[in-house]
Amino acid sequence: MNIGTRLYTRLNGELVGEDAHGNRYYQSREAKTAPLYRRKRWVVYKGRVEASKVPAEWHGWLHYTCDAPLDGGARAWVQPHLPNLTGTPAASVPAGDERRGGQRPAATGDYQAWRP
């Protein structure tokens, strides 16, 4: 969080809630909002700033789709939210990649090198 966001949040923000990952969600205080405008909503990320860290239940609220965040744990089949893992060690790699054991079907140009 840069200094501008920190200052703005201190002056204008009203904490709405916190998600399972520790991201905190704010909206502007009613008193600070002009009468004909809607209340501004924003998120303060925990750790790295990465938009995909926002889970679905807060995503709807953040984009003014719903008035309150949804209940994420309401249904047993809902998977826990995962941010975009590209570029991290947990990133998805295809089967056959060295990081997945290197087992893949034979392809043109393959050869088996001699080892003593």
Partner: peptide, 11 residues
């Protein structure tokens, strides 16, 4: 046989 037991680097 051209695909197996190949020498592909000096030893």
């Amino acid at each position: 046989g051209l695909k197996v037991q190949r020498l592909d680097t000096p030893w």
